[in-house]
Design a protein around this nucleic acid. Structure first.
Lengths: 258, 258
DNA sequence: CAGTGGTCTAGACCACACT
DNA sequence: GTGTGGTCTAGACCACTGC
């Protein structure tokens, strides 16, 4: 195989810091990741069987297995016994709102059905210093701003501003967003080849200003959950900045700690 | 070993529903869990080596390994190469606030030092229907209510009401809480043998009432993060109910999604 | 040095899905 | 039946820790 033997370095430097030891399965994991990034295997598709991959990389099945195990734990791959291993996708019924932690309160009727989405705006702007920093751009580079509203059972509940680097999302319009059936991340995946893989959120309590109150049919000064999200694609590159305001009178943000 | 062979049932029922297949390593995991629950191995201690456990359960080292892998992934055990596998504990420097997701904002000076904790109250009450349901008690059974305040750099930031089933925490007083050096969960672990393992939180934005505003040195109606937590011990038994109010003007609740 | 967890292999067999 | 992932084993060797 093209990969170095277990002790990865070829030439041992004399420096004191020992050469980072990288197990074979980690290197295999890296190679699989490359194939995912390059689009060799697309979201929803099967990847080659463990035996095939073992042959391809000239390692044992067990080593491939451990690499895939970690990728599956990171939700990049999905294993299905008897069928194969698949590239994870946002366009699946069960994984609809993978990053949305807002849930109806227990008292609320459960079958609230799908959310009603409406696009309020979609325009091109220049990144502020802060936005540029978070999106790994330079200040003033073009970004797209999407503003949208989500309602549950007719009650407007989420108001979101979404900033995207303009170049990977060239051609995105309010119209395309409005027409698309499915989540926004599914659209990004299908139409722009950008798959969101991981995100970080900062949550605060804030008071609704006049415009926010109007759009959410709430009252001025009402407490809202502010959720700032940075979403990353494969190589941990930030690809989306999102600021959501959630009404939490009939819903709550759910989190599991372990 | 005392465990049935891979296909777990001894007598195959004729019923259509197939007998749940339970892999050996899952059964080993269960046995290790029992030893943790029973206190055979206490928080902070080493458990027997993989080879010893393999002999004890009459399985291969690899099977024990997979069981321990999962327990380590759940943060019940901690592996340390060359030293052994240890029972996870809340009384460790690096794992100080394992369940507290509140972080200082980036702008805030970082070395804010340890939190200042003060116990406001500790009294015995009877569980409401709601509390009883969440704590697996019966309405009216005795519970302890602890109210405390946490401050960072002198600024009161977290106000918490904590409900505990009275019997496992018999003898808990405001004095003991105030004196103890370390987190509350470390105290529970050391003094009452109750180790919290997992928790669920429901987060909302609320407005401060008069008393809350006074205690948090905030203003009436100021937006606060309401964090309702149910913490569980080993067998997934709920053992604590907690309602925290967080000021989020200089801090935020941080969450990673993947 | 001995003892621990960590990696890698090769092979056998089981559970599941599809055809 | 064939092919997939899932389990289990046994053995060799590596990396880390502490005596």
């Amino acid at each position: 195989m093209a990969i170095a033997a277990p002790s990865s370095s070829l030439l041992q430097p004399v420096a004191e810091t020992p050469v980072a030891f990288s197990p074979l399965y980690q290197q295999i994991k890296g190679l699989i990741l490359q194939s995912l990034q390059s689009g060799e295997w697309k979201p929803g598709q099967v990847i080659p069987s463990e035996i095939d991959l073992a042959a391809r990389y000239h390692v044992s099945q067990g080593t491939v297995r451990k690499a895939i195990d970690e990728l599956a734990a990171d939700n990049l791959l999905v294993r299905r016994q008897g069928k194969g291993t698949f590239v994870a996708t946002h366009a699946e019924h069960h994984a609809q709102y993978r990053f949305l932690r807002l849930q109806p309160d227990a008292g609320t009727l459960d079958g609230e059905g799908p959310a009603q989405r409406s696009i309020l705006d979609c325009k091109r702007l220049r990144a502020t210093a802060e936005q540029a920093r978070l999106l790994d751009l330079r200040t003033g580079e073009p970004v797209l701003l999407v503003r949208r509203l989500m309602a549950f059972s007719g009650v407007p509940t989420i108001l979101e501003d979404i900033w995207l680097p303009a170049s990977p999302f060239k051609g995105l319009t309010a119209e395309r967003l409005a027409i698309y059936q499915g989540t926004m991340y599914a659209l990004f995946e299908k139409e722009f080849g950008v798959r969101m893989v991981r995100a970080e959120e900062k949550i605060r309590a804030v008071s609704a200003d006049a415009e926010q109150a109007r759009l959410l049919q709430s009252t001025l000064g009402a407490p809202l959950l502010s959720v700032e999200r940075v979403a990353h694609t494969y190589n941990d590159a930030p690809m989306e900045l999102r600021r959501g305001l959630y009404r939490t009178d009939t819903h709550h943000y759910h989190n599991s700690l372990s």
